[in-house]
Design a protein around this nucleic acid. Sequence first.
DNA 1: TAAACATTTTAAAGCGCGCTTAAAACATTT
DNA 2: AAATGTTTTAAGCGCGCTTTAAAATGTTTA
Lengths: 354, 354
Amino acid sequence: MFKRLRGAAAREVKLAQKIKLSTIADALGVSTATVSLALRDSPLVADSTRDRIKEHARTIGYIYNRRAASLRTSRSGIVGVVVHDIMNPFFAEILRSIETELDRSRQTFILSNHYDQLEKQRTFIDTLLQLGADGVIMSPAIGTPPEDIRMAEENGLPAVLIARTVENANVPVFRGDDAYGTALATNHLISLGHTRISMIGGTDQTSTGRDRYQGYVDAMEKAGLEVKPSWRIPGPRTKQAGFEAASQFLALKDHPTAAVCWNDLVAIGLMNGIARAGLTPGVDISVTGYDDLEEAAIATPALTTVWNGQREVGRRAARALLDKLAGTALKPSQELIKPELHVRQSTSRPVERA
Amino acid sequence: MFKRLRGAAAREVKLAQKIKLSTIADALGVSTATVSLALRDSPLVADSTRDRIKEHARTIGYIYNRRAASLRTSRSGIVGVVVHDIMNPFFAEILRSIETELDRSRQTFILSNHYDQLEKQRTFIDTLLQLGADGVIMSPAIGTPPEDIRMAEENGLPAVLIARTVENANVPVFRGDDAYGTALATNHLISLGHTRISMIGGTDQTSTGRDRYQGYVDAMEKAGLEVKPSWRIPGPRTKQAGFEAASQFLALKDHPTAAVCWNDLVAIGLMNGIARAGLTPGVDISVTGYDDLEEAAIATPALTTVWNGQREVGRRAARALLDKLAGTALKPSQELIKPELHVRQSTSRPVERA
DNA sequence: TAAACATTTTAAAGCGCGCTTAAAACATTT
DNA sequence: AAATGTTTTAAGCGCGCTTTAAAATGTTTA
């Protein structure tokens, strides 16, 4: 009882009297309908009226009440976005383009990491359901069963996938053509004269992982080159992992002269590890990355890498979700964005080691 | 009309009949009160009852309706977090510790970048107000006027600051002791024998910037060393900026032998730039960073840097906000967390260049 | 000038509806 | 009979925004 009184009292003190649509309507002598339409830029309202309303709203410090709006529209204006790790710069551009696209439709987005833990991902989806979110864009955690996605959709939370796919999920997926991308990198190394090429980092537990490995294997085999299982050094997708993989790589019996890395982070870590061992990356060992992060261009040596079309992935995913929400959705599509090779100084003709 | 019908129909088809507290209560022959209390782990409910309720809730796929709850509690369960750039690894640990702390109180958090643009920050705060968020944790954008914060608080959105302070804002602030931190780094270089020390990166437009510069200046002066204005090379806080600052640094007339960098990113960029110019960072030029990112330890050479207590900053900020929400808030505090120096290979005795 | 058309504004209904909590009631143990 | 533990009762939290058909106003045509 006491608590309630305190809350109510606080509210009254703080808010004086609440400023709402009708406050504006009364002040300007128009109806709340006009104000509502004007604030949302409806073409029904005359320009002069709209300007007056918006101006007045700003000066009196009106705050749009989304909860009241969603009461009426049954749309919360919230979209969830889950990825492995938002700190991973690979997602930087994707997230930025998603943000741009969602902003345009006045949707707020809630971001979360799942760190490839199914439990975290489920908790997040649950939170979105609790909040009544309008949809979710996700880079699914390793091992995500299609039921998880179906469950979300059945509870009114449409989903769109990025970067990775989930078999039988029957939702739109937007990602780069990973097999093609690693093939680009591998072929580049082969054309420089490398014959013993290792692949470092990543996992085969994701669609991305399998595709990237396949692209590498296909390119090698098409060139008539051998692929030794020991040349595949899987691992996390971090600089730290690349750094640690260096010693294992350098200890390989056949002395590969080049490494196709899972991503730029692994590649940069590997180059650091190679340098720490007294060799010169880009001369003694050729290294390719993947993603073309900003950092790739300023690494030493500058990193040859595969650009992945992140911006397109984010933009299209957001659009697809918005279309779904608007009910103008096309059928679920599996869109592959074609990557491009950016050649820099981390790759060169092979040098035989003593 | 058509639209509405479609929406309603879709809802009915999708949700069949909504599962709510009373569904569980009826099925188990208890009251909704018991169910409510059980789900929130109230000690009022017997263990056996609680287990039965939770178990049943899970099996029938009950989804807690936060909007209904917030109708009653007038708490949305949403907390906003704004920083310059969530991709910046400096914030990684801060955000993680905030997340941990908020999770514990079943708060969801909405993340946003403001990229030091006041307008973006205002838009975000506005969004939080519209959503009825419970509070905001922010690393304020450069030039944030105290009125912005006061406005948020007056509209029922309590704020807590991290990393930077805003004069006269009268809200809790949690950040590292920046002056002390750069003094640590500078003193370390001085003790190695450096006398011409440059400071690279960052800006003087933030409290952090002024403090870090002051710490450097104080340390220099206390050691009786000269501080030339040309030795201060301000700039963005990115690797790219550090990389680009290298040529300017190396062209300085007096040939400083060491550089105190704004943060690890700038330091690593600078080291890349120094290496690109044919010099060896850590030997020819000593470099210190700030933040002690994971990356600092695996850089080549491993970076001497200042650990900033990010985890503490995040944890305490979140706690302070939660206390404010619970009404148990202490008075606004300005808490400084003491940094520590981590010495690695990027610093050594000075070598005179030809 | 009246009809037809275009533009702008309004009236009015209805969206959401389950969850929390203080206080009372009941059950069990000292 | 008092104290402790568990469950239920019952009231009330929130209350402004959106939307569409229809009316009002303004403008052009016959």
